[in-house]
Every structure is written in structure tokens, then in C-alpha cells.
């Protein structure tokens, strides 16, 4: 007779094994290879002629103007999108929570863009932002000059950010809405007995109760924003004048279009390290605040 423990682990492995094999091949191995490649001059068209180059790729990356531009663009995008999307989601959730009629309608209406593919949404917004598109038609009707939006180096990034907020905000809204519905109504009733103002109720009940969700939304939106590639790829191709060229786009172009796998791997490693550090910092910051309260 097999020991129960052994039998259990065999059964466990039978369930877990296939997933582990697939994860190893398609996730862990590529991750390890990426780290190894980042120290080589691996060129996709000539893999036999690959050498270890130490930290050369990393030195090159930090001296590369385009990488710096891509990095700054990504940071700019994150800085625009994170507050907009987090506050927007919270605002929408609060509104819907208060609305008495057509609650379902609003929920669906705000959530629909999330279900749509980003590529589709981007294509749609190319039309909306076009010189003779709906936004410019409205602007012209109000006597405001037509704007170039995604066709100008100054406006392209904010335009894409606004579109991205519109596309993504519904998802975070649903999360917040769930959080709002989970708050014990007794808390509000008690506050009302003390004649607390609406703002006080929001500040002292709603926000603290939603705090864990806020942290979650904050971090996921930030990481999601850092990964941006689809919107510029579809809408602007990284232009005009590299103003919407993002980090992930740079990694993609370097690796698949220019065939420089080694360099692209180094970029990916730098990107991951940066996002991990940022996430840790965010975690620490949000934790500290909570403890002080």
C-alpha cells in the first residue's frame, strides 16, 4: 500500500503537472532566456554568431536617446492616466451607487468599452479624433478651431491617454461599486444620527472602507499603464516625432522588427526591474498612510 501522502502528491501532480509543463515552456523558460539573452548580442537572423557582451546592452540602453524618450513618454502616460482612471472610476461608482433609476443601464454603458478589444477601440477613436471627426465637428460648431489631436506631437499622448481612460475606467468602476455595496449601511445611519455632512461621510466612512480596493486599483492601473503598446501601435505608430513611442513598443520594435533580441531582452529586464521597484514603493507608501491613520 502506498502511503496516503505519496498517493496524494501523485494525484496532486497529475492535476498540477500539465499546467506546470506548459507554464515552464511558455512562461518560466522564456523569462530565464530573456535574462540570459540580455547579456548577449543575440541577433535573430544570425543566432550562431552570438557572444556574451556583459553589460554592454544595458550601457547602450541608457545612452540611447530613443529609449529615454520612450521611457519618459511611458511615465507621462502613467502620470496622466493613473489619477484620471482611479478618480474617474471612483466617481462613476459613487454616481451609479446613488442613481435610483436605470442603474443597470449605466453600469452596462460604462462597462461596455472594457469588453471591446483595445485594437477595435483604437481604430474607432482614430475616426473620432480625425480632422473631420466628431470631436472636431463639435468644436467647430462652438467656434473653436479644429485640433490635430493624435496628429500633433503635443496632443497625441494626452489624446491617447483620454481614450485609454474611457476604455478602461469601467472595469475599476465595477470593482469600486462592489466595494461600495459591501460597506455596512449601519455606519452611514450612525453618521446621519450625528448630523455628519455628505463630505464627512465620504471622507470618514466611504474612503477608509474602500482603502484596500483603492490600493489594488492604483497598482493594477499603474502596471497596466506601463504596459501600453496597442493604442500607439494602432493609432500613431509611435509618432508624431516619437511622442507616443512607449517602452513596450520600443522592446517590440527592437526585438521583432530590428531583430536585435539581445538588446530587446535587456530592455525588457530594465522594464521589469523598474515596474517591480515602483510596485514595492507604491505598496510601502499606501501601507504607511494606512498605519498612521
Amino acid at each position: 500500500m502506498m502511503k496516503k501522502n505519496t498517493k496524494n502528491s501523485i494525484v496532486g501532480m497529475a492535476f498540477f503537472g500539465p499546467a506546470l509543463v506548459l507554464l515552464t515552456i511558455f512562461l518560466f523558460l522564456p523569462m530565464i532566456l530573456t535574462v540570459i539573452y540580455s547579456f548577449t548580442d543575440y541577433f535573430a537572423l544570425n543566432p550562431d554568431n552570438t557572444h556574451f557582451v556583459g553589460f554592454e546592452n544595458f550601457v547602450n540602453i541608457f545612452g540611447d536617446e530613443l529609449f529615454t524618450t520612450a521611457f519618459l513618454n511611458t511615465v507621462k502616460f502613467v502620470v496622466i492616466i493613473v489619477p484620471l482612471q482611479c478618480l474617474g472610476a471612483l466617481g462613476l461608482a459613487l454616481l451609479i451607487h446613488k442613481v435610483a433609476y436605470c442603474k443597470k443601464y449605466f453600469k452596462v454603458a460604462f462597462f461596455v468599452p472594457v469588453v471591446m478589444s483595445l485594437a477595435v477601440v483604437s481604430t474607432l477613436w482614430i475616426q473620432i479624433y480625425s480632422p473631420e471627426g466628431i470631436i472636431n465637428s463639435i468644436l467647430t460648431a462652438f467656434g473653436i478651431e479644429a485640433q490635430p489631436f493624435i496628429y500633433s506631437a503635443k496632443q497625441a499622448l494626452p489624446s491617447i491617454a483620454i481614450m485609454s481612460v474611457w476604455q478602461g475606467v469601467g472595469y475599476q468602476m465595477i470593482i469600486f461599486l462592489g466595494g461600495l455595496q459591501a460597506i455596512n449601511p449601519a455606519l452611514y445611519e450612525a453618521a446621519e444620527m450625528d448630523h455628519a455632512s455628505a463630505w464627512k461621510k465620504f471622507k470618514d466612512i466611504t474612503l477608509p472602507e474602500l482603502k484596500p480596493l483603492c490600493v489594488f486599483v492604483f497598482i493594477t492601473v499603474t502596471i497596466g499603464a506601463f504596459r501600453m503598446i496597442v493604442q500607439p501601435m494602432v493609432m500613431t505608430g509611435g509618432g508624431p516625432s516619437s511622442s507616443t513611442y512607449t517602452l513596450v513598443y520600443d522592446i517590440y520594435e527592437t526585438g521583432t522588427v530590428n531583430w536585435e533580441i539581445g538588446l530587446a531582452s535587456a530592455m525588457a529586464v530594465v522594464f521589469v526591474i523598474f515596474v517591480v521597484i515602483l510596485t514595492i514603493v507604491q505598496n510601502l507608501l499606501t501601507k504607511d498612510k494606512g498605519e498612521k491613520k
Binding site: 523558460l29 548577449t40 543575440y42 550562431d48
Partner: peptide, 12 residues
């Protein structure tokens, strides 16, 4: 460098 190639070939 050979090892890397073998790992990659193995993966493929």
C-alpha cells in the same frame, strides 16, 4: 554560448 542555443532549441 552553445548552451543557450541548446536550451532555446530544446524549447522550440
Amino acid at each position: 554560448m552553445k548552451q543557450i542555443k541548446y536550451i532555446a532549441v530544446g524549447a522550440i
